[in-house]
Design a protein around this nucleic acid. Structure first.
Length: 618
RNA sequence: CGGGGUGUAGCUCAGCCUGGCAGAGCGCUUGCUUUGGGAGCAAGAGGCCCCGCGUUCAAAUCGCGGCACCCCGACCA
């Protein structure tokens, strides 16, 4: 339907209905005959010839001013250009123009997923709740899961993701190692009751996701499936014009082992990314590894209790005792899966709650409330693990390895000097749970890490046997032994990609679409349509564009030239062609490159070639 | 879920403090004029002032309660 520079379109997406009259498939045995194959190839290779869209007919309202709710550039422009209309928090309608861009993004994804060997399927969005109970995620997803009941009061959920359902489908079709490996994908609506939708299309409650799942006999072949998906993602983002970097990530509620995110770096991103400028290490802050500043070495000294009136924070304490924060140990209280938990970490570091949660294998982690703190007799501001009883202690290695740390005395206004792990207290679990920050040393090369904000565009996981075990997806190996399949999963948010494309391709006047996702190839501004010469030149131009397979949006509205130019800049189609008496007098049409602003008069006979050049399709 | 903000015409907003006829610009409709960067003149249409309760002779305006939307945080593949 949309032509691409590479003719990789396949017949499923491009064949118009008239192809059926060429050779009825029901009469074909053993494959298509030569003529039919040739016809099919022709149709598949050339783009559909669609008539130009007239703006006088197009349902589109552009806005001079952005609605006050929008903060992000992409959100403002999506609303101003009339691509989306808000329905409720995290829910948007797409107008004809906006939907064309979504379809082009989806098409790129389809082409690249198909190219990578993945097979497209379609799964229901409505899921029996039992499926989610079986995997144990009905609870783990919490309130994010939209739940409902049918007329017989049977429980259902609107699918926030599809590991459970794809596992069901795979389980019905995979029996033998001969059926593996296989990668399935779909492009489908997801529903998540997000606590806070935001940023226009950045975080939605109903959105489109391309989700893919690979099934392998073992971890070694999973690596190949994972790499294939990874490489497809690189091409998808490249073609769509979203600059991304792969970063190490936590696998979150989905579960699993290795996981990487494709992140679009932008100041408006929701995630913090740590980057090593030297060795290229990149990771989401929730996952980032680093080497904390070294402790100050010293012989173990005897514990000493000191009066520290009113000193409750690490900063106050360090100043009062004229020591460095790294010579103290910080106490943090949590509730992990409803049970109290004591966390000890060196005073100059902060707790990374994701890492802590993973170290505990907990599903829920929340700060301890004041009532519980009082009930347990904890002294906020002067707490420590020394002499602590009644709850497990988790410690960061920083708090375990450093000697002679200042700790709370578990008594208001008193602290202990020279506490030492092993001698004065003992952690039940020691795990790296410190949060990486700007300037911390890279774990690989010790270079100070930098931080950037980023937006997660795609995520690839090695799931392993997590779901195949709970959902019972097994195969028989060469020895007739029953084994769980090894899974991977791979997601891309389509609407979020649209937002990122605009974030990366706009200026003060509006959007500047990359050629592969533009809703139309060229934008024709027709001025003085009451003049026969203009009407005639427009008709010729439209015919030539159609022959060349270029789609066109024609501004034939009875509005002033200024309005048309402003709207063209706002809508952002890469090529603008102005048909007007002035341009005709100068010997042709005016051609303007939206991205560069470059403008020139081009003779009618060269317009197609010049347009194709801007679109990168010569 | 905590903190902050905003709800008045399709959009951007004034009016509210100090209660008394519902407002402006843009957009929309019609006519005339106009056509190279959001044109001009004229005439129009368009309102549950977020909802409910209360105070008052009288509420967009004051009080109480609720809801929605946005932003920050928590949360979140």
């Amino acid at each position: 339907m949309f032509s691409a520079p590479r003719c990789r379109s396949n017949s499923r997406t491009t064949a118009p209905s008239r192809s059926f009259s060429i050779a009825p498939t029901w009469s074909v045995r053993g494959g298509l005959d030569r003529n039919t194959r040739r016809a099919a190839t022709f149709i598949a290779t050339f783009p559909r010839l669609e008539p130009p869209m007239r703006m006088s007919k197009l349902m589109l309202k552009t806005l001079r001013e952005p609605p006050s709710e929008a903060e992000l550039a992409s959100h403002k422009l999506l609303l101003r250009a009339g691509l989306i209309v808000p329905l409720a928090a995290g829910l948007y309608c797409f107008t004809p123009l906006g939907w064309r861009v979504i379809r082009r993004i989806e098409n790129i994804i389809r082409e690249e997923m198909d190219e990578s060997g993945a097979q497209e399927v379609h799964l229901p969005a409505l899921h029996p709740i039992e499926l989610w109970e079986q995997s144990g995620r009905a609870e783990a997803m919490g309130e994010t899961l939209f739940r409902l009941a049918d007329r017989k009061e049977r429980g259902f959920a609107l699918g926030p993701t599809h590991e459970e359902v794809i596992s069901f489908l795979a389980g019905r079709n995979i029996q033998s190692y001969r059926d593996l490996p296989v990668t399935l994908y779909q492009i489908q609506t997801k529903f998540r009751d997000e606590p806070r939708p935001r940023g226009g299309l950045v975080r939605l409650r109903e959105f489109t996701m391309k989700d893919a799942y690979s099934f392998d006999t073992g971890w070694d072949t999973l690596d190949a499936s994972y790499d294939a998906a990874f490489n497809a993602y690189v091409r998808i983002f490249q073609r769509a014009g979203v600059p991304v970097i792969p970063v190490a990530a936590d696998s979150g509620a989905i579960g699993g082992k290795d996981s990487q995110e494709f992140v679009f770096l932008t100041d408006d991103g929701e995630d913090e990314i740590l980057l090593c400028p030297k060795c290229g290490y990149a990771a989401n802050a929730e996952k980032a590894e680093f080497t904390p500043p070294a402790a100050i070495p010293s012989e173990q000294l005897p514990v000493e209790k000191v009066h520290t009136p009113g000193k409750r924070t690490i900063a106050e304490l360090a100043e009062f005792l004229t020591i460095e924060p790294r010579q103290t140990v910080k106490a943090v209280f949590y509730k992990a899966d409803k049970k109290p938990l004591f966390v000890a970490i060196r005073g100059d570091l902060d707790v990374n709650e994701i890492k802590l949660k993973n170290a505990l294998k907990a599903t829920e982690l929340e700060p301890m409330d004041d009532a519980t703190i009082r009930a347990l007799g904890l002294v906020a501001g002067s707490a420590s693990a020394v002499g602590l009883k009644g709850m497990p202690i988790v410690a960061d290695p920083s708090a375990v390895e450093a000697p002679n740390l200042v700790a709370g005395a578990n008594e208001e206004d008193y602290h202990l000097l020279n506490t030492n792990h092993g001698r004065d207290w003992k952690a039940d679990i020691v795990a790296p749970i410190a949060l990486a920050r700007r300037g911390d040393a890279c774990a690989t090369c010790a270079t100070p890490l930098e931080t950037r904000r980023g937006m997660e565009m795609g995520h690839v996981f090695k799931l392993g046997t997590l779901y195949s075990e709970s959902m019972g997806v097994q195969y028989l190996d060469e020895n007739g032994e029953r084994k769980p399949v090894v899974m991977g999963c791979y997601g891309i948010g389509v609407e979020r990609m649209l937002a990122a494309i605009i974030e990366a391709h706009h200026d003060d006047n509006g959007i500047a679409w990359p050629a592969e996702v533009t809703p139309y190839d060229v934008h024709i501004v027709a001025l003085n349509l009451d003049q026969a010469a203009v009407v005639e030149a427009l008709a010729e131009l439209e015919a030539a564009l159609k022959r060349a397979g270029l789609s066109a949006l024609v501004d034939d509205r009875d509005d002033s030239a200024g309005i048309k130019f402003k709207d063209a800049d706002l809508i952002g189609i890469p090529v603008r062609l102005t048909v007007s008496p002035r341009a005709l007098e100068k010997g042709g049409l005016e051609l303007r490159n939206r991205a560069t602003g470059e403008t020139s008069i081009v003779p009618a006979g060269e317009v197609i070639a010049a347009s194709l050049a801007i679109l990168g399709r010569e």
